[in-house]
Amino acid sequence: MMNSMKTIKMMAFLAVFALAFTSCDDDDDAPAPINEEEVITTMNVMLSDGTTTKMLTVTDDDGDGPNAPVISADDLDANTTYQGTIQFLNELETPVEDKTAEIAEEDLDHQVFYVPSSGLSATITYNDQDANGNPVGLDFTLTTGDASTGQLTVILLHEGDKDAAGVSDGDPTNAGGETDIEATFDISIL
């Protein structure tokens, strides 16, 4: 009988202890804000013909938030060869963080695809390779043909299969993987 009284007392004690403990635990410190580290808010495609540089830019300030990205593209010149580079930025961080190096470091897992629409007179060839001899797409050549208008879709793919058919030629159809960036630019070749 004494035993059971002890048990009950102990239970009661534990209960009180638990409540006391939890109320101490209840700090009102505000949680720290998190700025997404991996988010890419801005992609700049720079096309240089040796004298001038044309810019294709997409910016999405709120990442996966509801605001639609803002897309802009300079007009391109007909029958011109452009040396292209691409840059990925996280503008939510101060100072602005350049994510391009992160992608270059993991070049085996990344590939940028440039897909012109059928009406757009432009061809793209890759100028860079990863350790396996597959393209990465951070350096490329864009050659325009006659004047035309259309779209250029730029896709950054993570962990796609670069050995799948057509992938190293710039066709994402069989690559699988997951899309980190996808933006479509309205292009006029004048």
Partner: peptide
């Protein structure tokens, strides 16, 4: 739908 820099969702 929402459009983001990753594409549409």
């Amino acid at each position: 739908f929402e459009q983001t820099i990753r594409g549409a969702f």
